[in-house]
Nucleic acid binder design. Structure first.
Lengths: 121, 121
DNA sequence: GTCTCAATCAACCGAATGGTTGAGAAAAGA
DNA sequence: TCTTTTCTCAACCATTCGGTTGATTGAGAC
């Protein structure tokens, strides 16, 4: 499943616990124990969540004695933002065009069928 | 899992096939058959994908004879963009603050010969 | 050395996911 | 009516996911 990075990032953020971790990491780096504290799950479960976030490129981990501080990598957000904005813009452009078409159609007959395009990859 | 809408949206877009469907829907509405054409999976599988996208609020489906045209709902993108931008900004603010601290440290070492302040490397 | 702390690895479990095939529903056309 | 087209529903299957407990590693502290 989910071979490319974009898939991994979206999948990582599909979990509320992992989203909350990312949110809290914007306050600064934290250890696994710190991150695990608020949640009602084992520290092993949190460690697994962090592995998912790490493989998505959302966090990195270094070493400080026994601790493994977790650091948020914000650049990956751009990957998502780019994808989202690209298609949101396209959708909005089409909406604007459709709007113009509809306004134009008001002068003509309102009986024609709605066009159904597709397969343009 | 995936109780709230944000989770459902992220989860829906974690699949490359579903992302491609969304991308193609920015060209305009399409039928299930149209959408299924490029993929090497059954039409039932595509129907399932569409159900996921629909439950995430990313698409809506109407009816036109036997066909069920699929329409992209771009507003849901805002939900993601808001979340992403919020935490990206927080992360970047923190980065900028760190940047300022580093810049301040560098001020003590202008482009002239390094005056050997006591700063450890 | 031994002990403790912080975190991961390993095995397991139940539920969800993405795919399949087969049957059926809904609407138009013959 | 019967047929065709379009799509969904219902089982079923293999894999993944999020969680658990138990064992183990890594790095101080004693």
């Amino acid at each position: 499943m989910t071979d490319d990075q974009l898939s991994r990032v979206f999948a990582a953020l599909a979990d509320p616990t992992r989203r909350d971790m990312v949110a809290r990491l914007t306050d600064g780096d934290a250890t696994v124990g710190d991150l695990a504290a608020p949640y009602a799950v084992s520290i092993q479960a949190v460690s697994k969540h962090l592995k998912v976030l790490e493989e998505a490129g959302l966090v990195t981990r270094s070493r400080d004695a026994q601790r493994r501080p977790v650091h948020l990598e914000a650049e990956v957000f751009d990957l998502m933002t780019k994808w989202i904005e690209r298609y949101r813009q396209r959708a909005e452009e089409r909406f604007v065009r459709l709007d113009a078409v509809l306004a134009e159609m008001n002068d003509e007959q309102p009986e024609t069928e709605t066009p159904m395009e597709g397969t343009a990859s």
